[in-house]
């Protein structure tokens, strides 16, 4: 069962025909050559496949490509402006926030989306006052809000520091 779909991926319009079973992750990686979204567990348990769809971070491995007709997809590949890396990308480098690097694109897109969510005033389960207007990104908040992205090298300490620096500035 095939369907033609159009996605906007990292600012470029892409039209392709996919088997209905194709996840957004497989469409990106196997069909469009956008390999920055990684396949870790393929079951929504690790976050390596995290991309933004219409501005929200989601697990692309649990999203069918056909169900995302017309969507705006942003991967870690699409964050840089020309040769200028995104502040979160620069911070990950300067804080040595990775070892093998496999989870890194998912971590970075998740961090970028997470800072937007906090700006929107979305609480987390560790937020002291649920009714607050703002949720400053303490280390505890960052750790909770990033818990959907696993790092098997356990670079968590530096990941939190890298994000904290950008969140503070």
């Amino acid at each position: 069962m095939e369907r033609k779909i159009t996605l906007r991926v990292d600012g470029k319009e892409r039209t392709l025909t996919v088997d209905t079973r194709t996840t957004l992750l497989d469409a990106l990686r196997e069909r469009l050559g956008v390999t920055s979204a990684k396949k870790g567990c393929d079951h929504g348990q690790c976050g390596a496949c995290t991309v933004m769809v219409d501005g929200l971070r989601v697990n692309s491995c649990l999203t069918l490509a056909v169900a995302r007709e017309g969507a705006e997809v942003v991967t870690a590949d699409g964050l840089a402006e020309g040769d200028e890396l995104h502040p979160v990308q620069r911070s990950f480098i300067s804080h040595d926030a990775f070892q093998c690097g496999y989870c890194t694109p998912g971590q970075i897109i998740s961090a970028v989306a997470m800072m937007r969510e906090a700006e929107e005033g979305w609480p987390s389960v560790v937020s002291e006052d649920l009714d607050a207007d703002e949720f400053p990104l303490s280390r505890e908040e960052i750790a909770e809000r990033m818990s959907g992205n696993l790092c098997r090298c356990a670079a968590y300490v530096n990941i939190v520091e890298a994000i904290e620096e950008v969140a503070r500035s």
Binding site: G44, G47, T50, R57, V58, N59, S110, M114, S147, G148
Partner: peptide, 11 residues
């Protein structure tokens, strides 16, 4: 907020 992850809760 105690369930799943932010990514999954967006879906």
């Amino acid at each position: 907020l105690a369930g799943a992850s932010f990514q999954l809760r967006n879906l």
